[in-house]
Amino acid sequence: MSLTGQPVTILGAGVAGLALARALALRGAAVTVLEQADAIREVGAGLQISPNGAAVLRGLDLQADLDAASMRAEAVQLIDGPTGDPVTRLDLARLRPGHGYHFLHRADLIALLLKGAEAAGVTLRLLSRVGEVDLSGPVPAVVLESGERLQTPLLIGADGLHSKVRAVLNGAGQPFFTHQVAWRAVIPCEPGAAPVAEVHMGPRRHLVSYPLRNGTLRNIVAVEERDKWAEESWTLRDDAITLRIAFERFSPRVRGWLDRVEDPWLWGLFRHQVADAWVKPMGQGGVAILGDAAHPTLPFLAQGASMGLEDAWVLAQSLATHDSPAAALAAYQSTRKPRTTRIVAAANANARAYHLSGLPRMIGHTGLRLLGRLSPGTMLSRFDWLYDHDVTVGRG
């Protein structure tokens, strides 16, 4: 199946959508990205790109842009939240040579992907809010809220948690509240901060922090278990005092960071099922979803962006190397669904491990300390299946 001149419409200009746009355009496709916003912007927050995600950016010839926009991470440090005592350290230098682990601002990742997409010839249409996805005809169609109807041989839903394309393929979802909420904030960083992700663990709550933008900013994600429901939204603000109270029994280091937070973002954490149907062949084209539209994940393994990047590469490669759209779409789903299901389950498990209390907490932390002393590489090697996976060379 040749992609040269092949029209493709992508809904959503996020990480997965822009990465796919560049991947397809580099293979000759005529790609249009529809974005509902009036400009490409991201709520300010940090993210982590692990080696499996960085491999895709390298494959898209964006390695230099990634290096310029990010900090290379040295380690993940697990810390007892209330006391501030170290529990164990995962030395990321133990990863295979060339497999960098990166901290960067989400806006910077979006900017480099947008630049790469436009350089490859992608057309971006802003203010294109989709009202309806129509798969009843011979080819996919979207109806914009303006009334404009657009038909396209290949329609790709990179339209996030509340994906209209996913809903058409799978019906209405039923996510459930995990009784956890997360605050996000970015504050000025103290001078000389090491490029280390600190995970401060406490009973029913934890906080993750790491530096961004050459150490000028510090990213904070704080999670608390609670009964009170919160909206699943990236644009909800909360009172900083509420955040400080939630972590008032944590160490002075954590409390000092939170004293500098002025206006945190808050979102409720909901568990979604990995979509049953990711694709639908239609005539000489079809429909597919990727990223959060296909497999929303809790933020406890830092894999949301990297999974979207992997999806983008595999979908583009499948479309370029199979004889028909139907075969390509089937190969994409069969390749990606088992891996993303495993990643989502691993993130769910981390949520439980970070929030232990009482005797299980004491036993767990003691075990981690001993393991870190006796076999420091063991914990990180448990994630070889995740970080060593390189979709650009067809492994896994």
Rank of each mutant, 00 (worst) to 15 (best):
R361I: 10
T123Q: 15
L371Y: 01
A21Q: 07
G364D: 12
Q6V: 12
T4P: 00
H365M: 13
A172Q: 14
N170S: 12
L368Y: 11
L258F: 09
G14I: 06
Q284V: 06
E225I: 00
Q174L: 13
L112C: 09
R352K: 12
Q151M: 08
G5H: 09
A111T: 10
S128Y: 07
V261E: 12
H162F: 13
A331N: 10
G121C: 08
P7T: 02
R253D: 15
L18Q: 05
D159E: 03
V221G: 05
V165Y: 08
H272N: 09
H200W: 15
T366L: 14
A293I: 00
P281V: 03
R41T: 12
T216W: 03
A302Y: 03
V33A: 01
Q180C: 12
R213A: 15
Q333D: 07
A107P: 04
S50H: 12
H272L: 10
E224Y: 08
Q6I: 04
L155W: 03
I49E: 02
L112D: 04
Q317F: 02
W183T: 10
R369M: 10
Q273G: 13
R106C: 06
G84S: 10
I245D: 13
L266E: 05
A69Q: 12
W234T: 07
F176V: 14
T216L: 12
A240M: 06
P175H: 02
G157C: 11
H365T: 11
D384P: 00
A294E: 01
D91P: 06
Q6Y: 08
A312Q: 06
T341W: 00
V254R: 10
A347S: 15
R249S: 14
G367C: 11
D276M: 09
S136F: 01
L109W: 04
V8Q: 02
L92C: 08
R339T: 00
R249H: 15
S306T: 14
D65P: 02
H206C: 06
A346S: 12
T341S: 13
L124R: 06
G286P: 05
